[in-house]
Amino acid sequence: MKFLKSKIIFILVISLLSTLKAQELAEKYLVISLLSTLKAQELAEKYEVKLIEKIVMGITGKSYPKICTVNYPVDRIKEYSTYLVISSCKQADMVIAGTDELESFDKPILLIGDTEIKDRKDVIGAIFWKKGRPQIIFIDKNLKRFDIQIPREYNKYIIKKDSLKYAEAVF
């Protein structure tokens, strides 16, 4: 009889707590849901950061490479990256930049965004979006300047030119 009583009390307590929890979850869920509407591009952003992470780790060969960001939202890196460590540009292994108009740190720069790469010696590559798909290019001359060996899978993205120009039509 005593066991049954304590069992009933336990169930009641759990039920009460679960109600409170359900309410909390419901509120949380609603907030997330509303935020998800606002963050329509969050999957693309995540995809982009994961790509940056993969490239930087591949290039530096480090498990926790240090990066700095210039004109690129650092919070996005913090949100989606597991391994990239944010540091000052002086100490960084690579610079992630949202524009090519930046001072020189004598560090390899990875440009992010749909921008034309000017003739900079420190920009080793870029990621930009075309037709909803990320496009990667690496500049051969600048890779060599930093003596960077990119992973083999990216070799097909290496271009010999100084700046990004689309190939001529096949016609």
């Binding site: 037709k131 798909r133 990320p134 496009q135 993205y157 689309y166 190939a167 001529e168 016609f171």
Partner: peptide, 16 residues
């Protein structure tokens, strides 16, 4: 024939 991001023929395109 895309509405946006239209590329000239022969342009390289990296797919997913």
């Amino acid at each position: 024939a895309s509405k946006n991001d239209r590329l000239p023929p022969g342009s390289p395109i990296q797919l997913l």
